[in-house]
Simulated assay, not measured.
Amino acid sequence: MTESLLLSDPQPGVRLLTINRPQRRNALDRATYGALGEAIAAADADEAVRAIVLTGAEGCFTAGNDLSDFQDTSDTGPSAGLTFLQALTACGTPLLAAVEGFAVGIGTTMLLHCDLAYAGAGATFRLPFAALGLCPEGASSYLLPRIAGTKMAAELLMLGEAFGPDVACDAGLINAVTAKDGALALALEKAGALAALPPESVLATKRLLRAHTRDAVSAALALEAESFHALRRGPAAQAAFARFFKKRDGAS
């Protein structure tokens, strides 16, 4: 584990994972991806853990991938983000998300792999891949059209405009919108309810719900990753990253 990920057990059977990089709006760097993947796998292997809740510290879910990692074009191995997403898809324990503040890029696409998700009023979602010279990831090119419809998926993924929790709910990314700062309380309530149910029944239900799309999701992750990392190393994406840091550093 690292200081960028906090682990706690707020109630019996519930493991809470809190992304803790508030100085970067909880953007995910390689170390945090690794810690998240390890923590999810460890919780999934622990029979005492009946539900896992993901959230972010200090009123922000995550601003997505730390773009400084994307500027490294020498990395040719499996990406830390893909390894994390594979840990999400492999997890048999119910996964819940509590979203406040920003949920950008993978901060939105990871919700497609959570069983339940809730967002506070005022949360902001965005899938800015095309604007950054990239393409969809997280199997979103497969899962989002499936749950939101092709027209809404195209709008969210191609235009990449920010949208609020009501749209996220309409798109099937979250279950419900809560009062501001109320998402974690509701997620923990639902996690506690799941933890109180017969574990064999809950695990079998999740397994059956995911069985019909498991192979397609795996294939989509691999296909997207191939295109994503080719584009990431390209001139359009690298120029977009440079503009982002110039704007950020000039404003700080």
Rank of each mutant, 00 (worst) to 15 (best):
G122W: 11
A123M: 00
T124W: 08
T124A: 12
F125N: 02
F125Y: 09
R126S: 10
R126G: 05
L127P: 00
L127F: 03
L127M: 13
P128L: 02
P128K: 02
P128V: 03
F129W: 12
F129G: 00
F129C: 03
A130D: 11
A131I: 10
A131M: 12
A131Q: 15
A131R: 15
A131Y: 09
L132T: 01
L132V: 02
G133S: 05
G133C: 02
G133Y: 01
L134G: 00
L134Y: 01
C135N: 13
C135A: 15
C135T: 15
C135E: 13
C135D: 11
P136F: 00
P136G: 07
P136I: 01
P136Q: 01
E137Y: 06
G138H: 04
G138T: 06
A139Q: 04
A139F: 03
S140F: 07
S140R: 06
S140I: 06
S140M: 05
S141V: 11
S141N: 14
Y142S: 12
L143P: 01
L143N: 03
L144I: 00
L144T: 00
P145H: 02
P145D: 04
R146T: 08
I147D: 11
I147K: 13
A148K: 05
G149H: 06
T150Y: 00
K151P: 00
M152P: 04
M152Y: 06
M152A: 14
M152Q: 14
M152E: 14
A154L: 05
E155R: 15
L156E: 04
L156C: 02
L156A: 03
L156K: 01
L157T: 05
L157D: 05
M158N: 13
L159Q: 15
G160A: 04
G160H: 01
G160N: 01
E161M: 12
E161Q: 13
A162H: 12
F163M: 05
F163T: 05
G164P: 08
G164S: 10
G164N: 13
G164C: 10
P165N: 09
D166I: 10
D166W: 13
D166H: 14
V167A: 09
V167Q: 10
V167T: 15
A168W: 07
A168P: 08
C169P: 10
C169F: 12
D170G: 07
A171S: 06
A171P: 01
G172S: 08
G172Y: 07
L173M: 06
I174A: 03
I174Y: 03
A176T: 09
A176K: 07
V177H: 06
T178K: 04
T178N: 07
T178Q: 07
A179Q: 11
A179E: 14
K180F: 07
K180Y: 07
K180E: 14
K180A: 15
